[in-house]
Design a protein around this nucleic acid. Sequence first.
DNA 1: AACATCAAATGACTAACAGTCAGTAAATAA
DNA 2: TTATTTACTGACTGTTAGTCATTTGATGTT
Lengths: 213, 213
Amino acid sequence: MGTTERREREKEQRRNEIINSAEKVFFMKGIENATMDEIAEEAELSKGTLYLYFKSKEELFHAICSRAGKKLLGMFEESIKYKKNGLLKVKSIGQAFYDFSQGYPEYYDVIKRADSMKICDCENSHEAKKAKEQGEETLGLLKKCVIEGINDRSIRSELDPEITSIMLYGMSKGVIQIMNEVMPETGMPLIQDKKLFIESFFEFAGYGLNNQK
Amino acid sequence: MGTTERREREKEQRRNEIINSAEKVFFMKGIENATMDEIAEEAELSKGTLYLYFKSKEELFHAICSRAGKKLLGMFEESIKYKKNGLLKVKSIGQAFYDFSQGYPEYYDVIKRADSMKICDCENSHEAKKAKEQGEETLGLLKKCVIEGINDRSIRSELDPEITSIMLYGMSKGVIQIMNEVMPETGMPLIQDKKLFIESFFEFAGYGLNNQK
DNA sequence: AACATCAAATGACTAACAGTCAGTAAATAA
DNA sequence: TTATTTACTGACTGTTAGTCATTTGATGTT
């Protein structure tokens, strides 16, 4: 009798519906200003039910982070397909990160915020741990490409793949973040031509990575 | 009769004492968990008085950001003294940023968090605007050094100083941030040897900046 | 069909906290 | 001494995260 299995499926579905509603409210009102009551209303459930599926508002936030991270990882994986060598793969990951920040600004924002949070709510939050691990996996993909690049001689062999991949990831995050900042008073973006800016960054990073000359 | 002037001075001092107390509580309990009641108690004032000096908890936070930014700018300015050319100055700013993150981790944390906040609470918060403007000034100093480096031929002349300085600042922030992250589960830092890591970064960035060879 | 069992959902309730404001105290001026 | 201005107070309000005793409804049993 597949009752239990069906129950399990339905539960998973409810969970996802709740995350959907949370996304709507979080992105509409901003993370701070969103309330659990609103999310409950959006999900057409009582607040109590929300807490049957998620331990806290923060856990719900981390579930969204996890989705965002999954999307990002997927875009990275997609981007490196059919690329001829490690260096090109590394560059295409950078490009994918930029595309992610522009194509899914809310998801990008969620990841940015999670990154700046104090170290490890992982203790008590299953979702936070999941999101962190996703970050590790993403970093692992980048590292794999750096290693590939060293092996196929497109990337300088003196570089340590571990250090280099973490450095590249950090640099990309920082560059994309500052690119999206706006100036006080005017509210104008710090960078007008984002494409030029990100290309300049790729070129700059190329000097550090590239093997030829 | 200098009563008004003295009053002004005393007011400024109270303000600073409140920020001192807020720092203590914020850093002790974490920014989210700190309460205005605790800060009031620490400052030996009533909560109502706090609100005579600061419009909100957030404004108090931004006042701390402003202090942190001031400290950072000071360290940047100090670090470039007696450096022989633009490239060395740029590098020493990077080093100062690293030193700041290690020497004043709470201030570093405050800046990191402020950076990840949604664009512009500047509208209504005087302190937020002040902190943002400080960021601009800091970036301006870096730009000045890049220009100096281009003029004294220590930095490649093809680089655009505006783009390059923003890029360097973003890269540094990102690299220092990821350097301080910890892994899920174990809680181990992602980077064991921070000095090696930051040196690798300087070397890497050097390839993009350096004029010779 | 009637009843028993169990999981899922509810919403009124509590606690905690940001922010307010009518009232008090203290300093200065008259 | 009295009047006026300024600084401060703390009880109060409104909001929101999180809880839990109770209800609803589905599934299985006789």
